[in-house]
Nucleic acid binder design. Structure first.
Lengths: 190, 190
DNA sequence: TCAGCATACTCAAAAAATTGACTAGTCGCG
DNA sequence: CGCGACTAGTCAATTTTTTGAGTATGCTGA
């Protein structure tokens, strides 16, 4: 019962349809939560049945109509309860870490390549986060925005995403270069 | 089919029983993977049936006997295949991020407290990682160990854990202080 | 013009993770 | 001597997540 809170938090910012939420959960919100479209549709249906969100049909021209959802008062109350409850520990799962853990026992070649790719992907995401942050704060200086800006929540979580991506990039490039140096040294010995 | 690789990677370092693995997955390995004891027992049973690990009974004095597991050749081959495959994207799930995202719409009090607690927990983990890293490299300098040390995999993943915890601590303290300042400013206005 | 992609969603089945309840022996503490 | 904590597991039920397969419509570029 935790995806629901991620959905509610995402809907606080602006109303979304399931499809739009799915996009968000695949890129931006994925920063701190991840879910497939099917889960979101299911969750939205449940939330609506429980009265935590309200859906309304939006007629569109040139594309299928959609149902967008708004958080209700009960939804905000539910988030309030969630905020007061003890948080579950952070949950990280990363294939690359597992591979690096095993890197001295299996061939490191593929792992090095994947580290490079991950570092490149991180660079892209860093740029995206920086652009998003700049857009959120508009023409205000960061300090100013942090003190007086609206929608500080999304800004703060973006800052975290940015820091994580930077850390990821550094670790990936550092680790790749260590593994490469060791492969080279090993090759020399022969 | 991914927990199995985390288990295999953990067993590469030294043989473990299900119980010991459970401990590791609750603290150390939890750095990059998380699993409950039940899952580990189930997974070990499956891995043994498939011949990827071999179990043997260890008779103990003064406590129940245990079964410890070793990775077999087939297990290493399976890890090799896994290392070559495309990695799934990193998967992060964090209640606190969701709460911060919603912090400007629900009471920030609890969230601030939880951020402080998380920062304190991070400090503890940072110390633990530093101690573990020092133990792994023994009397070697870090550069030296990275170039020539054995078991470089665990060392590299620990470095990542350390960096993540440091980032966590910084973000938590920074975010808590931003939210506190805003609460204070808001109180003044009244 | 027509294939492919994007929007917008649904249903069902399988796999994985979580929750909760148990067994059973040992150790130390009061 | 009994109580609680630690070691070392097992079993079953439930919930969550993932995988896979569909339904429609409309726009765009080769």
């Amino acid at each position: 019962m935790a995806l629901r809170h991620a959905v509610l938090a995402a809907l606080l910012d602006s109303d979304f349809s399931g499809y739009q939420l799915a996009k968000a959960f695949d890129v931006g919100v994925a920063n701190f939560w991840h879910a497939l479209p099917q889960q979101l549709y299911t969750e939205l249906a449940k939330l609506e049945k429980e009265g935590l969100v309200a859906g309304r049909e939006v007629v569109q021209h040139g594309r299928p109509n959609k149902r967008v959802f708004t958080v209700t008062g009960a939804g905000v109350a539910e988030l309030e309860r969630f905020a007061a409850a003890e948080p579950k520990p952070t949950f990280i799962r990363d294939d690359l870490l597992v591979k690096v853990q095993a890197a001295d026992r299996v061939g490191a070649g593929h792992v090095v390549r994947q580290l490079d790719e991950r570092a490149a992907a991180a660079t892209t995401r860093i740029a995206a986060f920086e652009a998003l942050l700049a857009r959120l704060r508009g023409d205000q200086a960061e300090d100013d925005y942090l003190r007086h800006g609206t929608r500080i929540g999304p800004y703060l979580t973006c800052l975290r995403g940015l820091a994580l991506e930077r850390e990821t990039r550094e670790w990936c490039t550092g680790t790749a270069s260590v593994l490469r140096a060791r492969e080279a040294a090993h090759a020399e010995q022969i």
